[in-house]
Simulated scan of single mutants.
Amino acid sequence: MVAAIAAFIAVPTLALAQDAKHSFKMATGWPGGPLMDIGAKAFAERVDQMSDGRIKIQVFPGGTLGNALKVTETVKNGVAEMGHTWMGYDWGRDTTTVLFGGYAGSFDSERMLHWLYQAGGVDLQRQYRDEVFGVVSMPLFIRTAEVFLHSRKPVRTLEDMKGLKLRTAGSWLDMAKDLGAAPVTTAGGDVFPMLERGAIDATEWGTLWEDIAPGFHKVAKYLIIPGVHQPVAPFDLVINKDAWAKLSDKDKKLIETAARLTTFDSWLRIGEEDAKALDVYRKAGNEVIELAPEVQYRTREIADAWADKQAETNPWFAKVLASQRDFERRWANATQYRNVKVRATATQ
């Protein structure tokens, strides 16, 4: 009888716990643009909608709650309960971060999505960020291949890369040196003024569409493609572990689902908008330059050698790299059974 009464009392208690209200602050690394609009803010709006308003997330621009390049640290220390960042910003602590955030040796965005959501990547990411950084982590937003450079100088060949002062982040800081460039890093809000006044010759940032908003093309004539340094860029939702522990299992699942839906929506939106963006640059008077094959091949060679070297001394890097390379081998013949040859027509 006592057990039955206890069980009866527990039912509404459990319901109350599952329907608890939460209010979180989210630190980001972005001053604005698509990363905010269809990334962090879209996620917050989706969570609000899916929870019927019970879970509120206030999104702050980069630098408001802490260093825009150290969002993980801001969240770990409890200054914000959530953060939206690119994991590669943490590469100085552990280079494994770029395997999740994308680097010159990554596969394309479609394959990355398959690896993350169907081949164990999300689980590896959760385990890794928990063990090494002490935060809860999952993908939130993903880019297709980035623009290689918005440049004040034409860049096409390996010779053109020598001495080029470029802004970048993550492992490309190391690899660009092997191409002869002189890379530096800085927060997103500082990039435009540095490019405008010539403190740097060139910058990479996002995809064709994403780069319209910051206006790099207004102060740099040359648009260099493709983004061999960054074939894909998944972004990262980080959550303070104490804040995560306060959520019911139902609400944890809600957060995971919202992040996944936002990630897929961002991929679809960017893909469509990128297809329109080249015309914007051409109409603005920018010159579009395709990198010479020698640069593209050499970049991948440098990336593979760099990754092999990291794996020699970093067990986590070796574990994630092995998972990604196993995936690549499974997909090695995908173009044979997926791509159909068609003749060029007047509409193409």
Rank of each mutant, 00 (worst) to 15 (best):
Gly188Ala: 13
Leu69Glu: 11
Leu179Arg: 03
Leu195Tyr: 10
Arg325Lys: 13
Thr72Lys: 09
Asp160Phe: 02
Glu73Ile: 11
Tyr128His: 11
Lys162Ala: 12
Tyr222Phe: 11
Ala233Met: 08
Gly33Gln: 02
Met87Leu: 12
Ala334Phe: 12
Asp52Ala: 06
Asn333Thr: 15
Asn314Thr: 06
Lys252Asn: 00
Ala284Gly: 01
Ile225Arg: 12
Gly120Ser: 09
Ala258Pro: 03
Gly170Leu: 12
Val219Ala: 08
Gln58Pro: 00
Asn339Lys: 05
Pro139Cys: 07
Lys70Arg: 15
Val98Phe: 00
Tyr281Ile: 13
Trp30Phe: 15
Leu16Phe: 04
Ile200His: 03
Lys153Trp: 05
Gly83Gln: 02
Thr96Phe: 00
Arg300Lys: 14
Glu328Gln: 12
Ile38Ala: 04
Ala243Pro: 10
Pro234Arg: 02
Ala80Lys: 07
Asp242Thr: 09
Asn240Pro: 10
Asn286Trp: 06
Phe141Trp: 08
Ile142Thr: 14
Met138Arg: 08
Ile255Asn: 10
Met87Trp: 09
Gln58Arg: 04
Ala292Tyr: 08
Glu294Arg: 10
Met175Ser: 12
Ser248Val: 03
Gln118Trp: 10
Arg46Ile: 08
Met82Leu: 15
Leu164Ser: 08
Gly198Ile: 07
Phe327His: 10
Tyr222Lys: 00
Met36Asn: 11
Asp130Val: 07
Phe24Gly: 03
Ala332Pro: 03
Gly285Glu: 09
Lys250Val: 08
Asp242Leu: 01
Ser171Ala: 15
Val342Tyr: 14
Ala169Asp: 13
Arg325Ser: 07
Thr299Lys: 03
Val342Ser: 09
Thr203Ile: 05
Ala3Ser: 10
Arg300Trp: 04
Ala303Cys: 03
Ser106Lys: 00
Thr168Lys: 09
Glu287Phe: 01
Leu116Tyr: 14
Ala346Pro: 10
Thr157Glu: 00
Ser51Trp: 06
Lys252Met: 01
Pro12Asp: 06
Leu237Ser: 07
Gly62Pro: 01
Lys253Pro: 11
Lys221Cys: 09
Met1Asp: 12
Leu254Trp: 07
Ser106Met: 06
Ala4Val: 00
Thr185Lys: 09
Glu146Lys: 05
Met36Trp: 09
Asp90Val: 05
Thr257Pro: 13
Ala119Ser: 15
Trp306Ser: 00
Gly206Glu: 11
Asp274His: 02
Ile302Trp: 07
Pro315Gly: 02
Val122Ile: 14
Asn314Ile: 06
Ala332Cys: 04
Gly188Tyr: 11
Thr168Pro: 15
Glu45Pro: 03
Ala344Tyr: 12
Leu195Val: 11
Met87Arg: 03
Thr335Cys: 01
Pro193Gly: 10
Ala68Asp: 03
Val71Cys: 08
Ala322Lys: 10
Lys21Glu: 10
Ala233Asp: 06
Ala6Glu: 15
Met26Ala: 01
Ile5Lys: 06
Leu116Arg: 01
Val135Ala: 05
Ala334Arg: 12
Leu65Gln: 08
Glu294Phe: 04
Asp274Met: 02
Thr157Tyr: 00
Val219Ile: 13
Trp306Phe: 03
Leu291Glu: 02
Glu196Thr: 02
Gly33Trp: 04
